[in-house]
Design a protein around this nucleic acid. Structure first.
Lengths: 205, 205
DNA sequence: ATTCTATTGACCAGTGTGGTCGAATAGATT
DNA sequence: AATCTATTCGACCACACTGGTCAATAGAAT
């Protein structure tokens, strides 16, 4: 059973609460008591659905990887060879997934930081593969010829990447605490494309 | 008495340890037991030098602000009107201060994140002033005329800022755990200037 | 009537918390 | 030598919270 079965199901409430708890505190400092309190269920329910804290955590990693692979990685197409077009599409996807599953994003960034060594082999392998594929989706099959001739393309790539990351972090920071559901997605997209346009004018011939 | 009096003094060891502890865990989750353990002193010493956890924390904020104001803010000169020159100088300063006082930087970024509302008025005011002045040092008295005419200068500023932040975070991340004392500062500076050169070629006429 | 599933929260032993305090030590002063 | 004072320690305190258990329950299905 996946994340999105029955949203009012108590198991789902525990899962949602646990994602946020682990995201904020990391595994060790996360509290099962807070998880059930925020989920609004009795302590027993957690240990009814999951054997213990660690298995709950592993379940969350597994399901999160499923979601990211399905809804993000497999949807980026590599046919677009223009760098900025590719970047725009990826950023748009990332933002959409973030709006729908921000808990998963925050949770997984914690997982990426934590000692992966403790994770079972299968999950470790999936994470490595995810890293590699994300990177490949960013850069493979890109047409470099439109870049200015007199600049270091690798460094330019890096700089552009940092810019976009900076913009996205800024966006998240600006809207934190806001209800995502009534967010003007289109105007945000337009703002983002304006920034991309500046980059294009700067780095292209 | 400031931070840099006698480095082997037990009070200094407590201060150093506490800066790291608060930086990593934030105020609430920081542990006085861990602080004294990492400082290699008995529990009593902490409460011999400081009345309680909160006063220790306030002392650290106050002294950190002193250091940042003295060694960073007051040393940036505003006579340089070229944007990239100014950026280079600031980044170099920031990096130098970071190498010498990385604990203070990490500690203060925690302080910036936490609820400032709990801090006494005087410190709150100093922090606000620090924010404003840092921002002013970045942008005031800059000559805009060299930027390309067909791009949005404000957005370009933002993008460049995010790029540089990205580079610096990347630098810190790459060298985390390394001993700063035997770090080739000059070659890092050169690498950084290469990136600045790319930006200059991209955004200037 | 009986079995099965879902649900609760009091309870457990253990760990860690900020903070106290009496005792020990070392060094200087008398 | 004796006294005094500035340090230094860690055992100890009451308390909060930890991950996890389990007897009791209620409702549905058999």
């Amino acid at each position: 059973m996946g994340f999105s079965d029955n949203q009012d199901d108590k198991q789902q409430r525990i899962i949602f609460s646990a994602l946020n708890e682990f995201a904020e505190y990391g595994y060790d400092r996360a509290s099962t008591n807070r998880i059930v309190k925020n989920a609004g269920v009795g302590k027993g329910m957690l240990y009814y659905y999951f054997n213990n804290k660690w298995e709950l955590f592993l379940y969350l990693v597994k399901e999160s990887l499923d979601v990211i692979e399905e809804e993000y990685l497999n949807k980026v197409d590599l046919s677009e060879t223009d760098f900025f077009e590719r970047m725009s599409k990826i950023a748009e996807f990332k933002m959409k997934v973030y709006l729908e599953h921000s808990q998963i994003f925050n949770f997984m960034s914690q997982v990426f930081i934590m000692e992966e060594s403790k994770l079972p082999d299968e999950l470790r392998r999936r994470i490595v593969k995810l890293r590699e594929e994300s990177y490949a989706k960013l850069y493979s099959n890109i047409d470099f010829s439109s870049f200015k001739d007199d600049i270091d393309v690798d460094k330019a790539f890096q700089l552009i990447q940092w810019s976009i990351d900076g913009y996205q972090n800024n966006l998240i920071h600006r809207h934190e605490g806001t209800d995502f559901s009534n967010l003007d997605f289109e105007s945000l997209k337009e703002e983002f494309l304006d920034y991309i346009e500046v980059l294009r004018k700067a780095f292209y011939k």
